[in-house]
Design a protein around this nucleic acid. Structure first.
Lengths: 336, 336
DNA sequence: CTGAAAGCGCTTACAG
DNA sequence: CTGAAAGCGCTTACAG
């Protein structure tokens, strides 16, 4: 592995000049050429660690995720990776396995790698570590929800508005007995429940508490919640599942009960773009546009890493979901 | 950020002794305690770059993937991440966007980060870079197929056997008009076609070339291939889709034509574990067990990174797929 | 077991 | 524009 030493030997120039060349400073045309030529010949590549050691910057961003089990996270990674690498920044991935027992050292792990910043979909267990990290001046960008008490930028969607879209669609097609499957321990999903309630109220549709179901964020949870809804005296005509796995579970329960979508039950899902286009009929769905979330988070981070950029207080970027029409909502308006 | 200097000041011990302590050498009980105590008090954390610079090792492995668009890659990442971090090794992710134009510097990018090794699902475009890297002594582990001409360990599944499982299942239930959708430019899928042909031959089922369809590796490709199969004079009674996206496309085409699985067409998929359990009926499927692939690749890499481990020539680990039974294969044996 | 010293490969003021 | 020198925070023979 060639070093500046070798280039000095080959070119007769000093280490300082060589360093200047590689860092974009002004070097005489002639010297630049001779360094370039020697570098190519020796397959020279600057040593990242020596550089990091001096500059105290790593051009590496840590990406901290709760797990790697859904394609929500895959899209996040994909969007961030692209944006960062286009800017010469690499990405260290760390998963804090929030479902597991015990303390996790994910944040500590990233800190020890001296990442310049952390982009994260924060899990509860990561919060204390993130707080410390941010307090020490490391830029943190939260995706999906603003990490409580962390001095961090955030990129979120307007969850109330997103949920309202689902209700609008259902109400527009004549539904009034609308069930909702949510979860009251997850802030984003709580916001979706608020959106549902507000939109129902705005439409003068009474909120029936037995139609508001809570479920763990899993396929099995959604399946059980749907089963409970199906046992109600007066069944809902439609269900809005505010989380992707839960939606899958609800569809499973419907299939198991021999009920057809949309004939026997209308369905609106949330954040299941791939699946929604594979089913028959395709599903109506609120789309989070995860790619946009990811890119926005990377952009926020790149701005924080830019020493030229003015220091601004933490900011939250709010993106908007879109509604994708499918064939899973029956039109039950009375013909008049 | 505290350094050895600070610890020396606090403890009165030399840098060498402090270093020894942090690297597991023998240090007097009393001194160890005083270092430990000072380190905790100062929140000391060894500087990774100084360490890397000296040791010329980074405890970081690059993971190079063709893209991040399928959950095959997600499972790969997930499996590797877990195994590596359990061993204190971090993971730098790099995607070479093989579908894009132009040269990609993915391997160069990883090399400049001086990763200790690279685990990769090799895309064709990455091969030259991987060859150079491996030739320079960086351990490379290939997943899914043995990267041509690269001095690398590999973890693959037995694709012929995997495809044979699908044919076995179909033949056992009486199918003889069996279609196959594959792709003759992808080595693994070519192997699956061989498995299909061999198993058909073993069962004395004639291979009908019009039932062997080729398709790009995409949903749309699978859809078109299935449509072509449906136009045949004598339709197949079953189709085996040897790649997940293609399977999704084929199912879409069937739904669009108003055909039901398995009544009108039996279906066996490949590597779609999540989807196969969401559909009604659940799908029969060959499961690659991607998690096992990932873990095996990480284990191979960890062995290569272990300076104690004996140097052995590149080895290929062959894993076996499993068949998951569903309800998408009709039993058409004649009642006798 | 402990310590003094050299050095890993860069960057950065500071002179010239 | 160029160069000599110091130093980033560690580890590693080498003595003792």
């Amino acid at each position: 592995m060639a070093t500046y030493h070798d280039l000095r030997r080959e070119t007769g120039l000093s280490l300082a000049t060589i360093s200047k060349y590689f860092n974009g400073g002004n070097v005489l045309e002639e010297n630049a050429r001779s360094i370039e030529e020697a570098a190519k010949r020796l397959e020279f590549r600057p040593n990242t660690f020596a550089r990091n050691l001096r500059t105290r910057r790593t051009r590496t961003v840590g990406v901290l995720l709760p797990d790697l089990t859904s394609d929500f996270y895959l899209s996040i990674l994909s969007g961030i990776e692209r944006r960062l690498r286009d800017n010469g920044v690499s990405m260290l991935i760390c998963v804090d396995h929030h479902e597991d027992e015990g303390v996790d050292d994910a944040v500590e792990f990233l800190a020890s790698r001296m990442v310049d910043g952390v982009i994260t979909v924060p899990s509860t267990r990561a919060l204390p570590g993130l707080r410390t990290l941010a307090a020490q001046g490391t830029p943190v960008v939260a995706i999906d929800w603003p990490a409580d008490g962390v001095e961090a930028d955030a990129v979120v969607i307007d969850n109330e508005e997103a949920a309202a879209m689902a209700i609008q669609r259902l109400a527009d097609r004549g539904h009034r007995r609308i069930a909702f499957i949510g979860n009251d321990r997850v802030p984003t999903i709580r916001a979706r429940e608020r959106g549902v309630r507000n939109q129902l109220a705005a439409r003068r549709i009474p909120v029936r508490e037995e139609y508001i179901a809570r479920s763990p964020m899993s396929v099995e949870g959604g399946r059980l919640a749907m089963q409970r809804l199906l046992l109600l005296e007066e069944r809902p005509t439609a269900v809005f599942c505010s989380m992707n796995l839960v939606g899958v579970g609800a569809l499973t329960a419907l299939a198991e009960s021999g009920l057809r979508v949309p004939d026997d039950m209308s369905f609106v899902g949330f954040d299941m773009p791939l699946l929604a286009r594979m089913t028959d009929p395709p599903l109506d769905m609120v789309n989070q546009r995860v790619g946009d979330l990811a890119r926005a988070s990377a952009d926020l981070m790149l701005r924080r890493l830019d020493p030229e950029a003015p220091a601004v207080p933490p900011q939250t970027v709010v993106l908007h979901a879109e509604f994708l029409h499918g064939g899973s909502v029956a039109d039950i308006r009375r013909q008049s």
